Simulated assay, not measured.
Amino acid sequence: MCPTCDSEHLIKNGSVHNGKPKYQCKTCGHQFVVNSTKTTVSQEIKQLIDRLLLERISLRGIARVTQVSWSWLQDYVNQKLARTPRQVKVSGKPLGKLVIECDELWSFVDCQKNEVYIWLAIDCNSRKIVGCFVGDRTRKSACKLWASLPEVYQQCAAYTDFWQAYQTVIPPKRHRAVGKETGLTNHIERLNNTFRQRVSRLVRESLSFSKKLNNHIGAIWYFVHGYNAELAKT
């Protein structure tokens, strides 16, 4: 019997992915599966998934915890990462003397030969991430990092390591190349460690790596926004 119009004039119309037969009503044209086990993922579960994406847990682990299908979760995450903004938002005018620290974090996509570097800039006072770019380790990527900074942060002192790309991009009057022993890049080094501890795709010797560059970039930016949002609450 058709669940829409209660008609008994039905014909078989193929099957769904799990082999169950699909029927079509000849009266109203409605297609359906008898005793379908398909369920709708609640908004509460989606919110839980959104929070779990900010923790060190693989997508397979999230699927097991939330008891959603792997295929649905993959589609949901892919769409969420694709919609994630690729720009840092700075609300209001930062207070005090502005100083930033910059560094690049090694990662890979699909295999370790495909190296991808995460370029980050952090506000020393607020600890918020104020610049980010995902690419290679060339001067071009350093330019992209500098361009991602809000204009107010392009006018302040910037501490980096001695990687030559920084020297050709950051204005000499603002650039300070220092060694780790000075402690002037401690905040950005600690941030790198936080990324590796919290983003499963970046954990060393892990199977939770990205297979597609777009998803990798989206996951990094999703964590950047989540990290800044956590700091805004404190």
Rank of each mutant, 00 (worst) to 15 (best):
W70C: 05
R201M: 10
D161L: 05
R86T: 11
V68A: 02
E44H: 11
S141H: 02
Q43A: 12
A121W: 02
V77Q: 01
Y159W: 00
G226Y: 02
T138E: 13
K89C: 12
Q155S: 11
D75S: 14
D50P: 03
G183K: 11
Q87M: 04
A63W: 08
S42T: 14
D136N: 06
K26P: 00
R60K: 15
E151K: 15
T39K: 13
A219Y: 12
K173T: 09
V77L: 03
Y76N: 01
A158V: 15
E189F: 04
I57D: 03
N186S: 13
L59D: 01
L184M: 15
Q67M: 13
I188C: 04
S148D: 07
Q67V: 07
G96E: 07
L52W: 04
P172E: 09
Q197D: 10
K26R: 15
V34L: 10
A158C: 15
W221N: 12
Q197A: 15
E151F: 08
E115C: 12
F162W: 14
A157C: 08
N18K: 11
L207C: 06
A229L: 13
K20V: 03
W119H: 05
F195G: 09
Q31R: 12
S15F: 10
L231W: 09
Y153C: 03
G218R: 00
R204W: 11
F209V: 02
W163H: 04
V88K: 04
R137L: 07
K233C: 08
E230M: 13
G61N: 06
Q155P: 02
E151S: 14
T138D: 13
C5P: 06
S42R: 10
H175W: 09
C111V: 09
S71P: 09
T160V: 05
E151Y: 06
T168M: 14
F209Q: 05
N192K: 02
L145F: 00
E181V: 12
E205V: 13
C124W: 02
V134T: 06
H225A: 04
D161H: 01
F209H: 09
L191R: 01
G14Y: 01
N192C: 07
Y166T: 01
A177Q: 15
S7L: 04
Q24T: 03
E151D: 14
C28E: 04
E151I: 08
H175T: 07
M1H: 06
N18E: 09
Q31K: 10
V77P: 00
R86E: 12
L98Y: 01
V16A: 02
S200I: 08
P171I: 07
I188K: 00
A147D: 13
D136K: 13
W163K: 02
H17E: 09
N13C: 03
V34I: 05
S71W: 12
G183Y: 06
V88G: 03
G19E: 07
L73V: 04
N18H: 10
P85L: 04
K233D: 11
R127Y: 10
L95D: 11
L191E: 05
E44K: 14
